[in-house]
Design a protein around this nucleic acid. Sequence first.
DNA 1: TCATCGATCTGGACTTTGTCTAATTTCCGG
DNA 2: CCGGAAATTAGACAAAGTCCAGATCGATGA
Lengths: 136, 136
Amino acid sequence: MHYTRDNMASLLRSHDINPTHQRIEIAHALFSRQEHLSADQVMAIVNTRHSETSKATVYNTLKLFLEKGLVREVIVDPSKVFYDPNTSAHHHLYEVDTGKLSDIDATHVHISGLPDLPAGMVTEGIDLIVRVRRAG
Amino acid sequence: MHYTRDNMASLLRSHDINPTHQRIEIAHALFSRQEHLSADQVMAIVNTRHSETSKATVYNTLKLFLEKGLVREVIVDPSKVFYDPNTSAHHHLYEVDTGKLSDIDATHVHISGLPDLPAGMVTEGIDLIVRVRRAG
DNA sequence: TCATCGATCTGGACTTTGTCTAATTTCCGG
DNA sequence: CCGGAAATTAGACAAAGTCCAGATCGATGA
Ligand SMILES: [Mn+2]
Ligand SMILES: [Mn+2]
Ligand SMILES: [Zn+2]
Ligand SMILES: [Zn+2]
């Protein structure tokens, strides 16, 4: 599977998102890299060649992608949100010095002993973040 | 154990923090409530009677408490950091609709199968956040 | 008591991230 | 082509947090 802009259009349609030029570029930025990007980083990538997409559209589009389940939010840095094209169950390793964020496959990770949820509540997600730093 | 201001002064000294009026008030706000508070909330509590403590001091003091290990940061809401007077190992339950944050005792929670850390890295902490919302 | 001086506190300017809105542009069916 | 809905835009705005130069505090010792 190649992350062409045509494939991005199909991906968007399959998530019930009308594929526009800007949405395709933003999806392409995220999916072709398979990295965790902030809104600012997406903005910079999308506007490298020439300015094409406004700040408002970048924020609106990322929120739309999130609602439609195309991407996931990662809240780990107190100053900005990261958007994650990987929506399969996984956890995160965060290097606090550098801000580098990487995935931890969830298939071998087991979490047990969590208490029952409060009545009438349903789990939206379980985020596990391993914060690491250089030894010394 | 009563959370008097005198006890706050001792607590601060035991963490190598010079106990000033402002620091005692801020510590008292956190420890007497045993709640997760944002900087803004601390500011409001400390200045209820009459304005005593500036924004800069609230932020500086919370950062100092964090460095000295007196409180812990909880990063769960994309728009603000929460400060936690409970520094024992525990996890968090976050109600995404209301913003309500509560503790999950870690003694019965087991996490297994995490991969080895990258070489030269040491764990600073493992944050487990259960995000919940109203069913329906 | 009083002067001194390092530590602390302060107002307010500034930055960054994100939101909002009214106006414009694009897209598409008829 | 035309009309309307959907999408995009610039830029004003808001909230959280940082920074700094100057004011203040409070322990010390003359
Ligand atoms: Mn282009
Ligand atoms: Mn008071
Ligand atoms: Zn990820
Ligand atoms: Zn807690």
